[in-house]
């Protein structure tokens, strides 16, 4: 009976998350069809297990009258040993239904750390192939050229870049890849503040958590923003900044990174969906 209840519980987890829309707080919605399909699969297994239970063939047959003649009879202690694990299966069911969904914030930045996709100019594989595209017929490579060049054109067009959440990750990748193309341009984007002791009092990181599949594989993406005067924000304060893209040597990474010289800053409420998602690929 416990098995039926556990399978039902897992089915309920997936149904509950899809019904309430909370699923978007755990995964990139681009992959929601996978967990949606899982609902049906789990229902199917739940019903199958229920039928096995009703007909008395779920554990009994394996324990006593296995008709295959293999004679591997599980004695009762083994059965109880197996059952001792069952409470563990209820743990995720309970936490999904009774605990609130948490949002990743600076606490997780502390733990995970952050890195920027800086491309070393000396590395022949990072930049040279863009300048001299080889005519390989590999589909992905072609598609990638088109994508990144379309992105470059899209984001470097005009003098003001207003970053919406949908294009946040693509744009960040493009800016870190071609910082030169963006120097001097205006940029506007939203994120949460994060300060480290390596930074001066007028410098903060403005970050978003970027999600690939689920929040367990999220990373922090964003830029260093520099204010004209010292400012006092707390970690996890949400703001929209407007400013000019520039570059700066960042000692902890020993690399030059693109930064934003802030001209305007506006405090924001934490958005309903605090994450940004990888959409291509």
């Amino acid at each position: 009976m416990f098995r039926v209840l556990i399978l039902l519980g897992f089915t309920m987890i997936f149904m509950h998350l899809h019904a309430t829309g909370d699923i978007s707080k755990y995964i990139n919605m681009k992959y929601s069809w996978i967990s949606y399909g899982t609902i049906f699969l789990l229902w199917f297994l739940t019903i199958a297990e229920l039928v096995f239970y009703m007909t008395g063939s779920d554990e009994k047959e394996h324990d006593h009258n296995c008709d295959c003649g293999c004679g591997h009879s599980h004695e009762s202690p083994k059965k109880w040993k197996r059952r001792a694990w069952y409470p563990l299966y209820f743990l995720p069911v309970l936490t999904v239904f009774f605990l609130p969904v948490a949002t990743l914030d600076s606490n997780i930045v502390e733990a995970k750390g952050f890195h920027f996709p800086i491309y070393d100019k000396k590395d022949p594989y990072s930049s040279h192939q863009f300048l001299q595209p080889d005519t390989s017929s590999f589909y992905g490579e072609d598609a990638y050229y088109k994508m990144i060049h379309k992105d470059l054109k899209k984001f470097s067009k005009g003098d003001t870049i207003n970053l919406e959440d949908e294009e946040f990750l693509n744009a960040m990748e493009t800016i870190y890849r071609f910082p030169g193309e963006f120097t001097g341009k205006q940029i506007k984007f939203k994120g949460f503040m994060y300060h480290t002791k390596e930074l001066k009092d007028n410098q903060y990181f403005l970050f978003r958590f970027g999600i690939i599949h689920c929040i367990a594989d999220s990373g922090v993406f964003g830029m260093l923003v520099q204010f004209p005067d010292d400012v006092s924000f707390k970690n996890d304060d949400w703001v929209t900044v407007t400013g000019e893209v520039s570059t700066m040597y960042y000692q902890p990474f020993k690399k030059t990174i693109p930064i934003v010289k802030v001209t305007k800053v506006k405090r924001e409420e934490k958005p309903d969906d605090p994450y940004v998602y990888r959409n291509n690929q």
Partner: peptide, 11 residues
């Protein structure tokens, strides 16, 4: 947060 990451790994 740990619970949320745990659930997302399961999902």
């Amino acid at each position: 947060q740990m619970n949320t990451i745990f659930i997302s790994i399961l999902i």
